[in-house]
Simulated assay, not measured.
Amino acid sequence: MIEGIGVDIVSVDRIKRVYERFGRKFLDRVFTEGEIAYSFSYSNPFCHLAARFAVKEAVIKALKKPSGLTLKHIEVKNNSDGSPEVKIEGLNRKIFVSLSHEKKYSVAMVIVI
């Protein structure tokens, strides 16, 4: 049974502007070390950061804004086949995620079972 659905869209330029203003402080507040390393392994890390930010927001919406859950608690990893998956320590629910990004926007959809 589906417990929740969430969707979010993020401007890549918005993430870039926040990074340019706050730098590593912003990254450390929102993303895990793995997410930062993955994103900065690309020539344009901001579309990857924006996609991960969108996933985190979509997860919070799908879980109906649970108390105590922060963006940093939600980690987006890639499976061995390259598809994204969501890890949340202490949460025992199946989370399906789809994300996409292009030059200006990143979008994510999440289904929680």
Rank of each mutant, 00 (worst) to 15 (best):
M1Y: 11
M1D: 12
I2F: 11
E3K: 15
E3V: 09
G4Y: 06
G4M: 10
I5T: 03
V7F: 05
D8K: 04
S11Q: 13
S11M: 05
V12D: 03
D13V: 09
R14W: 02
R14H: 05
K16S: 02
R17P: 00
V18P: 03
Y19S: 08
R21G: 01
R21L: 06
F22K: 12
R24Q: 12
R24D: 15
F26R: 00
F26W: 10
L27R: 03
L27E: 07
V30P: 03
F31W: 04
F31K: 00
T32W: 00
G34R: 12
E35F: 06
I36S: 04
I36G: 09
A37M: 14
A37P: 04
A37K: 14
F40K: 10
S41A: 07
S43L: 13
S43H: 14
S43D: 12
N44F: 07
P45G: 00
H48M: 04
H48G: 05
H48E: 08
A54R: 08
V55K: 06
K56D: 01
E57G: 02
E57L: 03
E57K: 12
V59H: 09
I60A: 10
K61L: 00
K61T: 01
A62N: 02
L63E: 02
K64L: 04
K64R: 07
K64G: 02
P66E: 11
S67E: 15
G68I: 03
L69K: 03
L69I: 11
L69P: 11
L71I: 07
K72Y: 05
K72R: 09
H73C: 04
I74S: 07
N79R: 12
S80E: 15
D81Y: 10
G82Q: 09
G82F: 01
S83E: 12
V86S: 07
K87W: 08
I88M: 05
E89Q: 14
L91Q: 07
L91F: 11
N92C: 09
N92F: 11
K94R: 13
I95W: 03
I95L: 14
F96D: 12
V97H: 03
S100E: 01
S100L: 02
Y105D: 07
Y105T: 02
I111S: 07
V112M: 11
